[in-house]
Amino acid sequence: MRKDLYFRWERFSAWCGFVLLVGMLVAFAVGGIIPPMSPTESPENIVTFLHDHRTGILTCVALMVLLVPFEYPYVIVTSLQLRRVEGGWGLLSMTQLTTGVVAPLGFFFPLAILAAAAYRPEIHSADVLSAMTDTFWLMFVGNACIFVLQVWSIGYASFVDHRAKPIFPRWYGWLSVALGVVLIPGAFVYLNQSGPLAWNGVLAYSVPSFAYFVWKIATPIVLLRAVKQEEAELAESASEPQLADI
C-alpha cells in the first residue's frame, strides 16, 4: 500500500473516535436512557417507560448497530501506535487490541436485551420486563470495569516512551490511568440498589461517564497527532540517504 494512502486510513481510523462519541450521544438521547432510571423503580413504571420510549429505544439500538463497526479501525490504529512505543507487537499493544475488540459488545449486547424488552412489551409481564431492564443496566454499567486494562495499557505506554516527543503524551497517560480507576466502582452495581455505587450512582455512573467523555475526546486528538508524527518520521528517514549521497 502507498504510504500516503496508509496514513490516510490511519487518520480516518482516528476520526472514527469522534464519529462514535457523537453517534452514541445522539443514540442514547433518542432512546431516552440517559440519565438512567433508578434501580428501585417499580415494575409498573418500567412497563410505562418501555411503552413510552419504545420507538426511541429501538431507534437507539439500530443506530448503535450502525456505529459499532467504527470502533474497530479506531481500536486498531490505537494499537498500531502502541506498537511504535514497544518496537513491535507486545503486551501493551495486544492487550489494548484484544480488550478493544470486545468493547463494542459491551454496548451492543445490553442494548439488544433492552430492545427485546421494548420490541413487544405488551406480551410480557411486568416482572419479565423488569428483569430484562435490570439485566440491561447491570451489564451496561457493571461491565465497564472490564476495560480497565485497555485504558491502563495505553496510559502505561506514555510513561515508558522516553523519546523527546512521546507518541502518547504524559498528560494523556495520566488521563487514561484516572479513567481506569473510576471505572472500577462499576463492578459494585451488582451489590447495591441505592447510593453512589448503584447503577445510577455518582461513583458507578456519573463520574465514569464524565471521565469517559473527556477521554473519548482526547484520544482521537492524540491519535491524529501521533499519525502526523509517524508520517513526519518516515519522511525524514526517507530523505536521509539522499543527504548522505550529497
Rank of each mutant, 00 (worst) to 15 (best):
A226V: 02
S209N: 13
R2N: 15
L63T: 01
V222G: 05
A232Q: 12
Q229Y: 08
V77T: 09
T133Y: 08
L67K: 02
Q229V: 04
I123M: 09
L129I: 06
L105S: 14
A235N: 10
S176C: 13
K216H: 10
L92M: 10
S130P: 01
I113P: 00
F168M: 03
L5R: 10
W15Y: 15
L25K: 01
Q229P: 01
L234F: 12
A204T: 07
R54S: 05
G32P: 03
P166C: 09
Y212M: 12
I167G: 00
L111I: 08
G180P: 00
Q229R: 11
F28C: 11
F159R: 07
L197F: 14
A204P: 05
Y6W: 08
S209V: 10
G88M: 05
G17T: 08
A211L: 05
A204K: 06
A144K: 07
R83D: 02
Y6D: 12
P169A: 03
V47T: 14
V26Q: 01
I154C: 14
V207Y: 06
A117G: 05
W9L: 12
K165H: 12
Y190R: 13
R120E: 13
L82G: 02
R120C: 03
Y6Q: 12
L82I: 03
H53Q: 15
L223R: 00
G180H: 01
M24V: 14
A178R: 08
M37T: 09
H124K: 15
G90M: 03
G100I: 05
F107P: 00
G186L: 05
L50V: 00
P43T: 04
L129A: 06
N192S: 12
H162N: 10
T98Y: 14
F12Y: 09
P220T: 14
P220H: 06
T48R: 12
E233Y: 15
F108S: 06
A226M: 08
L129M: 14
L63M: 11
V160I: 15
T133K: 10
E236D: 13
S206H: 13
S153N: 12
N192E: 12
A218N: 04
I76Y: 06
A118K: 05
I184Q: 03
R170N: 07
L243H: 04
R54G: 03
V68E: 10
V189D: 00
T48E: 13
P69S: 06
A232F: 09
G155S: 14
V207K: 06
E71Q: 06
V207C: 04
M94C: 04
N200M: 05
L67M: 09
R170I: 07
A116I: 08
V207M: 08
F210T: 15
V177R: 03
V222N: 02
G23I: 07
E86C: 08
A198L: 10
P185L: 04
S42L: 14
Q229A: 08
T55Q: 10
L197V: 09
D161G: 02
A131R: 07
D134A: 11
S153R: 00
V227E: 04
V65A: 14
Y212K: 11
P35C: 15
V182C: 15
R84L: 08
I57L: 13
W9R: 10
H124P: 00
T40I: 14
V77Q: 05
P110E: 07
A226F: 02
Y172Q: 02
M64N: 05
G32R: 01
G23F: 12
P121E: 06
M24W: 11
I113Q: 02
G186S: 13
F49R: 11
F49D: 07
A198C: 13
I113W: 01
L149N: 02
A232R: 14
W152F: 13
